[in-house]
Design a protein around this nucleic acid. Sequence first.
RNA 1: GCCCGGGUGGCGGAACUGGCAGACGCGGUGGUCUCAAAAACCACUGGGUUUAAUCCCAUGGGAGUUCGAAUCUCCCCCCGGGCACCA
Length: 818
Amino acid sequence: MKYYPLKIEKKWQKLWEEKNFFKAKDFSKKEKFYLLVEFPYPSGSGLHVGHCRSYIGMDVIARKKRMEGKNVLFPMGWDAFGLPTENYAIKTKIPPEKVTKENTRNFKKQQKRIGLSFDWTREINTTDPNYYKWTQWIFVQLFKRGLSYKAKMPVNWCPSCKIVLANEEVIDGKCERCGAKVIRREKEQWMLRITKYADRLIDDLKLVDYPKRVKILQEDWIGRSEGGEVEFKIKVKNSQKNFSLKVFTTRIDTLFGVTFLVLAPEHKIIRELKNEIKNKKQIEEYVKKAKNKAERERIAEEKEKTGIEIKGVKAINPVNGREISIFVADYVLISYGTGAIMGVPAHDQRDLDFAKKYHLPIIEVIKPKEGRGFDEKKAYEGEGILVNSGKFSGLKSHKARKEILKELSRKGVARRAVYYKLRDWVFSRQRYWGEPIPMIKCEKCGWVPVPEKNLPVKLPKIKEYHPTEKGDSPLAKVKNWLNVPCPKCGNPAKRETDVMPNWAGSNWYYLRYCDSKNNKEIANKKKLKYWMPVDWYNGGMEHTTLHLLYSRFIYKFLWDIGVLPKEIGPEPYKKRTSHGTILAEGGEKMSKSKGNVVNPMEVIEQYGADTLRVYEMFMGPFEQAISWDTKGIKGARHFLEKVWGLAEELKTKKNKKTGNKKIAKEIEIALNKTIKKIGEDIDSLKFNTAISALMEFVNLLLENKKNISLKVFKNFLKILSPFAPHICEEIWQNLGFKGYCLTQKWPKYKKELVKEKKIILVIQINGKVRDKIEVESEINKEEAKRIALSSQKIKKWIEGNKIKKTIFVPKKLINFVL
RNA sequence: GCCCGGGUGGCGGAACUGGCAGACGCGGUGGUCUCAAAAACCACUGGGUUUAAUCCCAUGGGAGUUCGAAUCUCCCCCCGGGCACCA
C-alpha cells in the first residue's frame, strides 16, 4: 500500500474530534498544563505559513505533554475586531460581522486541516457580545478606580478619507489607502493609566521566564530613569514677583557644570513669564514655529539644534548661586520629565552642540579616571571624579549624586524623581468595528459608566460604515442608540461613540478560556485557580511592547481588585517564547503586493499536513527568522515516505524473529538515545534538531531492516507522533497495535543504554587531531596514554620529540604537547 | 547614535559547559533500474595536494588568552530587528 496522506489525514482528524481527545478537563487530578498560542485576527486571506509555524510548534508540545500525562489546556479563538474588516465594510457595505463569520469559519477549517489539537469547546471570539460584555466590564472597573480618563491627544487625520488613522495605517506620513498627507489633530480620547503600573511591569519581570531580549525590550519601552528634580529660582529684572521651574536630571553630580537651562516650547512658564520677557514677540514666534514642527513629527534628526534665549530673565543655580541664561528650544520635549532641562555642555553632547552655537560657557566638572584631557569637541558623558564642584570636588560621580541630592533635599530645592518613557495608553478609536466604550456623557453628572446590569453595550447594526465629517465614529450617526437617559439622574444624555482599540479584546482573552461560557463573571474563580497562570505562551516578537505589556497591565489590575484569585500570582504568563517569522524564498517579507505569499493549504494539498508539519519544524531554529524553501518540503515528505515504507515491510514480516542480536542491541541503544534527545529538544524548542535525530534513526533502521523489532518501531512512532500525528496513527493501526498512538505514554529511555560504553578517543599532538581509536569509555589517563602511544601514526609524530605535557579529558581526548 | 540578535560549504542549518568543524536536509555529480523519463535506490560532494594513504588551509576580517577557539577577550567590517533629541 502506498502512502496517501490526504486520505488518512482527514480520517484521523474526524476521529480525534469525535472522541474529544483534546478536551481539557476542569479540576482533573492530572497536573494541569496551560499552553497558549496567540489567537489570530481572522483575515480574508486565510492562514499564513507563519501562523502555522507557531501553531505547529505549540501543538508538538501539547501532544507531548498529553502523552506525559498532563491535563493540557490548548485553546484557540478569534481576535476579530479590527481595521481590515472595517475598511472592507466601508468599501463594500458588507457588514463586518458577516465577513468575520466567514473568515473565522475558514480559519478554523484550515487549522483543523493541519491536525492541530485545540480544545474547540472553549473557542472564543472577541466580537461576540457575550465576550465583549466583559471587555466593557473591565473598562468600567478601570474607570471606577480612576485608571481611565479623557484627555486631548493628537490623532492622525487623513483629510481626504476624512478618517482617523491608526499609527500602523500611516506610512511615511501618508495615508495607507489614498496616499494623502496625514495631518495631526487634537481630539478628546480615553486614556488608560498604564504608567501607574510602570514600576511593577519592570520589577515583576524578575518573576517570569521570558527570553532576555523580550525582557530588555519591555524595560527599554517602559524606560525608567532615576534621578532628581532640581528647582531653579528665576530672577526677573525690576520685579518683585517670584518664579521658579523644575528640571529633571539623571546626572545631578554635574550640577556645578550647568551653564544654561532649556525649556520645551510648550512649557507653561513661558506663558506665566510673558510680561517679564523682553523679546516676547521673538519667543512667541519661535514657539509657534516649533509647534508646527511638532505637527510634522519633528522627524528631521540630523538637523542642527535651534533655540532662542529668553531675555530679561535669569535662572539661579541652587548649588552655587550662579546666574545662568534660559532658552527655549524644540529639542526639549514637553512630554518627558518636567519639560525643562539643565544644560551641562561639558558632559552632554547635545548640550555641548547647543552651547557652542550660542557661545555659552563650558565648565568641566567630571574628570575621567584615566585622566584624559578635556576635549572641546566631545562631551565626556561617563562617570568620574568631580572637579570645580565646591566641597563636592574629589567625590566619585555616584557618591556625589547621593550627596548633592541629600544636601539640596534638605534645603527643599530638590527631590528624588523617577520618570518613564512609557506614556498612558490611548484607548479610543473613532471607528465602528470595535467594542463600544460603555460610557454616557450627562450634562449634569459628567461621564457616567453604563451600569453593569446593562452590559454589554451592543454594537448597533448600521449600513454606512464611514466616519462622520468631523471624524467621529459612525456610531455618532445612530441617533436612537446615541441618546439615552443618564443612568444617574435620568436626564437626557449621550453615549460615548468611540470604540476600543484592537488590543482591548486580547488583553484578557487567556482568562476567558478557563471558563469561556460564563455569563456571570469573567471566569469562575475556582477554574481560574485551577488553570492559571498560563504555563507557556508563544507569540510573535512584534507583540512584545504592545500586546504583551498591555495584557500584563490589565492582568495586574484585575488581580489587584480581587477579580482573580490571589494564589495565582501577579503575572499571567509563566513562560514566554517567540517564533521567528517565515520570509519568502528570497529572504524578503511575504506580502500580497509582492505576490510571494505561500499558502499552507496548497502545501497540504500537494504533500499532506504531516509533511507541512515536519517541514516547518525542520526548516530551522524555531525562534529565528527563516526563508521558505519549496524544495526543502520534499525532504520532509521523503522522510515520511521512508517511515511508511518501513512500516509496510514490518507488516509482512510481523511474526518472524529478528535477526542479528548485536545489531538489534545497537538499534535499541540508538532508540533510547533518540528518545532522550527528542524529549529534551521538544522542551527547549529545538524542533529542527529533534527531526534530524528522527531522520538519523530512520536511516539506521533502513540500513538494518532485518533487525527491527516491532517494539522498537512502536516506540519510534510514539516519539514521531507529535510532529506527524496522522501517519503515526495510521501505521499504529496497520501494525495492529492496541488503542491509539496519541493516547500512549511518552516512552522513557533506559539510562544504562544511553551511557556510552565505548567511545572514540581523539588523540591530538599540540592540539591537532592525529588519530582516533575506539576505547572503553571509562579508561584512565595512564591507560589512554599507553594506547595512544602505541599508535603508529602517533609514534611518527612523537619520534625525536619530547612530550612536555599530557592533557587527558575523560571520554573525549588525549593531547600531547611536544 | 544607542540597545538586542546574527555572520559556519552551492543553500537551510548542526556542533552539550573551550575538545573530531560541516550532523540532518536541500541542491549537485556519477551509477543502478528503464525503450526513455520521473520516482526510488547506491556512491561521492568545503578548498587545495596526492594514484592513494597523507598533509596543508578553512567558521566575516585582524589581534589576543589557551595544550586546544566556530565557541572566551579586545578592535574593525557587514546583515537583521528595536528605540530614536527620553535630559
